[in-house]
Simulated assay, not measured.
Amino acid sequence: MEDILRPIYQERASQTNTLGVLIIEKREKSIPFTDTFDAILLIVVKDAEQPIFIKHYSYQNKKAAMHIVTKEQLNEWLQIGSNRKIVEWLYSGRILFDRNEFLHNLRAELNEFPFNGRKLKMGLEFAKLIRRYMDGKSFFKNNQYLDAYNHIVHSLHHLGRLALIENGFHPEVTVWKQVKQIEPEIFLLYNELVTSDEELGKRLELLFLASDFLIHSRTEMGISHLIEILKTKEYWSINEIALHPELKLYSVDLEVLFEYLVEKHFIEIVTMETKGQGIFHRNYKAADRFIIKE
């Protein structure tokens, strides 16, 4: 396979803009590591007009895909976890070209996964968890059990990913296999939800009770990145928060997360008068009692 694809990647490797080339070959049919392709060529470049460029190829009744991504795009994926296959590709791919050991050094960084690098990823995962959990709870209260079920399944998935990151692991495509080994309590909760013969409403009721405890026990760790930033100023408007270079990565989950943290007394409201009588600006600050865990 590599021999057939060699002319394609050698042309790219000869360019000074190319930092590294990996080949990821299809392994298990049941696990979609390569998006059904027999091989993926992942080519990382310094910069390009498009952050992502993809081509598909056919050969010997097989198919391959070439993904050319910029270093900046790759770092964004790794930072915010929006492309879950990329970690798998970087770990399991075979290095075909590596300028100045770029890929080897990147793998070393992934293996180390320092705590400071984990804080942002935990924050983003916690925000997604709260969004799904709160939406699920709202549907449950309105007896919309199927919609509640959908959201609580996703919230457990985010809880599992959060637990893995907290323990220093990058969540993989087969996340529940990881969670079962590292956080069996969360796995059992998920398994109970999807396999129990109990009536759905009862299952959800018990699950929300158990989830309340698991979420509460991880809140301080999950929001440590957010609180560290909030503590750099006396108070913040919601617009200042939304425009912050790191906090804006929380995207649509930000406001729901803040309301949850206000309710749980991790964040306090600071009101300021406006020109209108009886209406106030609503600003936010980290609660004084909150202690950042190192």
Score class of each variant (00 low, 15 high):
3 D>V: 13
4 I>W: 04
4 I>P: 00
4 I>H: 08
7 P>W: 02
7 P>R: 12
8 I>V: 15
11 E>R: 15
11 E>C: 13
14 S>L: 14
15 Q>H: 14
17 N>H: 08
17 N>M: 10
18 T>A: 08
20 G>T: 09
22 L>W: 12
23 I>L: 05
24 I>Y: 00
24 I>C: 01
26 K>I: 11
26 K>A: 13
26 K>H: 15
29 K>M: 11
35 D>H: 07
36 T>L: 14
36 T>Y: 11
38 D>V: 13
38 D>M: 05
40 I>K: 05
42 L>C: 09
47 D>W: 09
47 D>Q: 12
51 P>T: 13
52 I>V: 12
56 H>G: 04
61 N>M: 10
61 N>G: 15
68 I>L: 12
68 I>H: 03
78 L>T: 06
80 I>K: 04
85 K>R: 09
87 V>R: 03
88 E>L: 07
88 E>M: 10
88 E>D: 13
91 Y>E: 09
92 S>Y: 15
93 G>S: 10
94 R>I: 10
95 I>A: 02
97 F>H: 05
97 F>C: 04
105 N>L: 15
106 L>S: 08
108 A>W: 08
113 F>A: 08
115 F>E: 11
116 N>R: 14
117 G>E: 03
118 R>I: 06
124 L>N: 00
125 E>C: 09
126 F>Q: 00
128 K>P: 00
129 L>P: 01
129 L>K: 04
132 R>I: 05
138 S>F: 14
146 L>V: 15
147 D>T: 07
155 S>E: 02
156 L>Y: 02
159 L>G: 03
160 G>L: 02
160 G>V: 08
162 L>S: 01
163 A>Y: 03
163 A>T: 08
165 I>C: 05
170 H>M: 01
171 P>S: 06
172 E>S: 13
175 V>P: 03
181 Q>F: 09
183 E>K: 15
185 E>G: 11
186 I>M: 02
186 I>P: 01
188 L>P: 00
188 L>C: 00
189 L>K: 07
192 E>Y: 12
192 E>M: 13
192 E>D: 15
194 V>A: 00
196 S>F: 09
198 E>T: 15
198 E>P: 12
199 E>H: 11
200 L>A: 04
202 K>C: 07
208 F>M: 06
209 L>S: 06
209 L>M: 10
221 M>I: 14
221 M>G: 10
223 I>A: 00
224 S>L: 06
226 L>F: 15
230 L>R: 05
231 K>E: 03
234 E>C: 08
235 Y>T: 09
238 I>Q: 05
241 I>C: 00
244 H>Q: 08
244 H>N: 07
247 L>M: 05
253 D>L: 03
253 D>C: 09
254 L>N: 05
254 L>A: 04
255 E>F: 14
260 Y>G: 01
261 L>N: 01
261 L>G: 00
261 L>R: 00
263 E>M: 09
264 K>G: 00
269 I>P: 02
269 I>N: 03
269 I>E: 10
269 I>G: 04
271 T>V: 12
271 T>Y: 06
274 T>M: 07
274 T>C: 02
277 Q>T: 15
279 I>L: 06
279 I>K: 10
281 H>D: 10
282 R>P: 01
284 Y>A: 01
285 K>F: 04
286 A>F: 05
294 E>F: 08
